[in-house]
Amino acid sequence: MHDLIAAPFEEAHLILRPGSQKGIKIGRSRFEELGQSVATGEELPAWLASAVRRAWNVSLAGRPVAEAVLMRAPGPYEFSRATWEINLGCDFDCEHCYLGQKRFEGLDWQGKQQLLHVMRDAGVLWLQITGGEPLIDPHFPDAYRMAYELGMQVEILSNGSRLWHPRILQLLTACPPTKLSLSIYGASAETYDGLTRRRGAFQRFAWGLDAAVDAGLNVDLSLIITSRNAHEADAMRAWADRLGVPRREYANMSPTIQGGAEPLPSQSPEHLTQRAPFSGCPAGHTFFHADPHGRASICKIGRDPNVDLIAEGVEGLARLGLIADDLMLRTGGCSGCQLSGSCRVCRPMAKLFQEAKAPMENYCQHGKRR
């Protein structure tokens, strides 16, 4: 298993270490030197061994480059990041969930392998695996390991309910994710189980969280604040602080991906935050989203039009830039607005709110009464 990843990135080249969010920037000549060293069987050069020791306190001196470094080839476009919904199925049934109909369906194992190779060949360095709940997908362990072995820095978005299972924990300990982002829905069983509509969900989450922290994984907590659990917001914050893990908060709910308004009533009005004006997005240009069927879209919100990566392969991604530019045009429901430059959501998100027939103040500051 490789200790380092050497990869082109934009106009530079990076040295990455699996499971770490740090990186080392190197020049083209150094990158080419590493590639030649792989071919000739040379040992890790002194300059890289020293840099790795400073960055990660790891000694790789004397190791063959071919053994220690995975060399990534450049992709044909500029994509370096992607998210992948491995499946939309979930073992929770949260009332605020934006997925709506959480059908457990998608690619078989052969299709998942093909998709991961397309992502690698496209130049994806940072891959976020999400769902639904990714850890309940029967192919998750094999898919995660393959992404890791292909030289992608993997982040997992999970509810944490399966983290205490020995097979999952052993996998993530041996092949640590760059980040393990866990959603937390309450600080007590009554609140947590009520929001997720699953008895015992709180206990499974607590077991999983403790197991991940004890294993030294890079845990990051996402505090999901709704009208049902807002009274425990301080307790959730204290829990994260007690464990010494980073935390962030989310209170602004969005419609479902089908344009349904079902999640919106779960919002806690006093915890809603005012979004900054939308100022652009790399979606469709340096980033893409893949759904459980291998269809690539600019993001998880702007899902149509999309590209079938299983049928078209890497070449299909060439169309995403034009799709993104078209979707981001402020047309349709916002036609005629003279203040579109200060919109607080992107056009695809505004479209979802409009399809859900949500009040304008949910997505547009110009809808507030003056």
Rank of each mutant, 00 (worst) to 15 (best):
S20E: 15
I26R: 09
G27R: 05
G27W: 01
R28V: 06
R30E: 13
V38L: 04
E43M: 02
A46K: 12
W47V: 00
L48T: 05
V52W: 03
V52A: 15
P64L: 04
E67Y: 09
D91R: 06
E95K: 10
Y98L: 11
K102Q: 14
Q110I: 06
Q110W: 02
G111M: 09
Q114E: 09
L116T: 02
H117T: 02
H117P: 02
V118P: 00
W126F: 14
F140D: 01
Y148K: 00
M152D: 05
I156Q: 04
P166R: 13
Q170F: 01
T173Y: 12
A174N: 13
P176N: 15
P177Y: 12
L180F: 02
L182D: 01
A189F: 14
A201I: 05
A201G: 03
G208V: 02
D214V: 01
G216Q: 10
N218I: 05
V219I: 11
I224D: 07
T226H: 09
W239Y: 15
S254L: 11
T256Y: 00
G259V: 10
G260L: 08
A261P: 11
P263K: 01
Q267G: 00
P269Y: 15
L272H: 07
F278S: 06
H285V: 14
S297C: 04
I301Q: 06
G316E: 09
R319L: 13
A324G: 13
L329F: 04
G336C: 04
G341V: 01
S342K: 08
P348V: 03
N362T: 12
Q365C: 08
G367Q: 10
